[in-house]
Write a protein that binds this DNA or RNA. Structure first.
Length: 447
RNA sequence: UCCUCGGUAGCUCAAUGGCAGAGCGGGCGGCUGUUAACCGCUAGGUUGUAAGUUCGAAUCUUACCCGAGGAGCCA
């Protein structure tokens, strides 16, 4: 019985007869010699058939294979530097083949470049391409590294509701759906408020699930449905949560570098940039960041960039500001102490400086920008009530949230990390849409 | 919602007022080391839609539809 292997482990099977099951990704026919590039879901490997080595009918069957045909191949593994693939460096000399299906010859995905629209319209097939395969394998590792670190550091996974009664943060647009006799329910855009309840039972918690934002954002950094992990920690102030974040993010990067080296290589990701991601991360205040942006703006001669970088204290940073700022650093950088007026109602004011709050964003380097938003939450009941009134939020809807401050209130902090933005940065790619299997954007819900 | 760019063969694109083309992909043939192989032959078109200008429109004008990038907002 020949050993069924995964292509990712092929180096452990050098000079053995093995079996793989997969699909023909590409083929090159050279008369008496045929090269098949076969993928099995775990990797890509070149398989070679030579007419003289095989029975006539087997060779003819190989010649007739179309792209994406499903096959079971038996053969001899041998090291060969010429062999393409992921991981590559090994090929299989075919001794036998079982064709499961000869794929229709009108497979629409070319091995050459595609426009974004065509690629997204064919996302169900695009997933098979090496670039998309590599990105989504990295995504999976990011997700498990997230859970691994939190689970190993005393965090309890508490999944928060996706159907929620009202806006948690008030400002952004929500997706609504009819909900029996209760009127409209809204798809969650954060689990944070629920997690603030959960910490009083479990001390350190996280929720991890899809998040929905009906914003009309048409940029390469936005999806209407994306995944966010939100840790929340009791007895933790702003400095404490920054320490958590840098340990957490560094672990994710480390795990990806260890487990997904072939995928990073196939994406031509410069891993030296990722290797620098170790604690501590630089911390700069919003005030300082404003100064730095003004300085960068001063130094640029490009009138377009000068206009984009125009800024006044009190505003929130836009993408151009974040990009310019993060290019000054090799590691992710914390920006803390944003103006209270641009942040959510629940953020703890800075002592003796109420115009700023104890908020902190983590901006990924190389121009990628915000991947985490977090803060210390208001723990004082009077202060919270005052803020809810200032923001003209319905007090009745926040009754339970305010009760949390009546019974054993403690300083606590938390943050939300956007999975797709993190994966975009890890992979060094341009579009967030490639980092989720089936992206949902403002004008796409197919496939 | 606003700004910019785009829509021509299955895909990626060329043709800037005068015969609608190339490469890839498909089909047929050739080749024992290909790396997005290569070589020869071949099929493949309502140029996003509608109207207009013109002897003549893929090309110019207007409206609309669709998409992309960016702004705002955010992870």
């Amino acid at each position: 019985m020949t050993n069924l292997i995964r292509i990712e482990n092929i180096s452990a099977h050098a000079d053995q007869e093995v079996k793989i099951r997969g699909w023909v990704y590409n083929r090159t026919r050279k008369g008496k010699l045929v090269f098949l590039l076969v993928r099995d879901g775990y990797g890509f490997v070149q398989c070679v058939a030579f007419k003289g080595d095989l029975p006539e009918e087997i060779f003819e069957e190989i010649v007739r294979l179309t792209q994406e045909s499903s096959v079971e191949i038996k053969g001899q593994v041998r090291a060969d530097d010429r062999a393409p693939g992921i991981p590559g460096g090994f090929e299989i000399g075919i001794t036998d083949i079982k064709v499961i299906q000869v794929a229709d010859d009108e497979y629409p995905m070319s091995l050459k470049e595609h426009g974004t629209d065509f690629a997204l319209e064919n996302r169900h097939l695009w997933l098979r391409m090496p670039s998309q395969w590599a990105i989504l394998r990295i995504r999976s590792t990011v997700v498990s590294a997230i859970r691994e670190w939190l689970d190993d550091n005393g965090y309890i996974n508490m999944d928060t509701p996706i159907l929620t009664p009202a806006a948690a943060e008030g400002t952004t647009t929500l997706f609504g759906t009819p909900y029996f006799d209760e009127g409209t329910a809204y798809l969650a855009q954060t689990g944070q408020l629920y997690n603030e309840a959960n910490i009083y039972a479990f001390q350190k918690v996280y929720c991890f699930g899809p998040t929905f934002r009906a914003e009309k954002s048409k940029t390469r950094r936005h999806l209407t449905e994306f995944w966010m992990v939100e840790p929340e920690v009791a007895f933790c102030d702003l400095d404490g949560i920054m320490e958590v974040e840098e340990q957490f993010v560094s672990h994710i990067v480390k795990r990806v570098l260890e487990d997904r080296a072939p995928e990073l290589a196939s994406l031509e990701r410069d891993t030296t940039a990722l290797e620098k991601v170790t604690p501590p991360f630089p911390r700069i205040s919003y005030d300082k960041a404003v100064e730095m942006i003004a300085e960068i703006r001063e130094q640029t001669d490009d009138p377009e960039e000068k206009a984009l970088l125009a800024f006044e204290w009190g505003e929130d940073f836009g993408a151009p500001h974040e990009t310019a700022l993060t290019k000054q650093f090799e590691k992710p950088v914390f920006v803390y102490g944003y103006p209270t007026q641009v942040k959510a109602f629940y953020m703890e004011p800075w002592p003796d400086r109420p115009e700023v709050c104890k908020s902190v964003d983590l901006l990924a380097p190389e121009g990628y920008g915000e991947i985490i938003g977090g803060s210390e939450r208001i723990s004082d009941p009077e202060m919270l009530l005052q803020r809810i009134r200032e923001h003209e939020l319905p007090e009745e809807a926040y009754k339970w949230y305010m009760e949390l401050r009546q019974f054993g209130s403690v300083p606590h902090s938390g943050f939300g990390l956007g999975v797709e933005r993190t994966v975009t940065w890890m992979c060094g790619i341009h579009h967030i849409r490639e980092t989720i299997p089936f992206p949902r954007t403002i004008n796409r819900v197919y496939p």
